[in-house]
């Protein structure tokens, strides 16, 4: 027996999901961060964030189609992390490093937090 491994499949699927997001196709939730609104797919949010996993697996909150985040969350930091979820690329802007890391802590995205922390420490050094 043998099998063919399509090495690009995961990134091809993610690119298509991001195309669906940018065209607002089958998005099923609006995330409200201060006065900004972000449309997304619950499944992608749950797959990437511990906080969204907890929210959308909750029997009562799971069916909500709009979620307001804590006002302390920075909309630009959230936007960077939402793009990361759909592209695997984390934009690091000097003036937003801490906001990005704090948003990742809030969203319970530990691996991103660790990576941001290491990046901040190395750039300080």
């Amino acid at each position: 027996d043998s099998c063919i491994q399509f090495t690009r499949h995961a990134s091809d699927v993610l690119l298509n999901l991001n195309r669906l997001r940018s065209r607002d196709i089958l998005t099923d939730v609006t995330i409200l961060v201060s006065r900004q609104q972000f449309r997304a797919h619950k499944t992608v949010l749950m797959a990437c964030s511990g906080l969204f996993y907890t929210i959308f697996t909750d029997a009562h909150k799971g069916n909500l189609n709009a979620i307001s985040l804590d006002p302390k969350v920075d909309p630009e930091g959230f936007s960077i992390l939402l793009d990361f979820m759909y592209t695997s690329r984390l934009t690091l802007r000097d003036n937003l490093l801490l906001a990005t890391m704090n948003t990742a802590i809030y969203l319970q995205m530990e691996h991103v937090v660790d990576t941001c922390h290491r990046f901040i420490k190395s750039s300080d050094a």
């Binding site: 027996d1 043998s2 099998c3 063919i4 491994q5 399509f6 090495t7 690009r8 499949h9 091809d12 699927v13 690119l15 298509n16 195309r19 669906l20 940018s22 065209r23």
Partner: peptide, 21 residues
């Protein structure tokens, strides 16, 4: 234990959804 030999396909695996129709 059955050895399965895996062939790596580096090319695109699925259709690409256009930015708009």
């Amino acid at each position: 234990y059955e050895a399965v030999n895996t062939i790596q396909e580096l090319g695109r695996s699925i259709h690409e959804i256009p930015r708009q129709d």
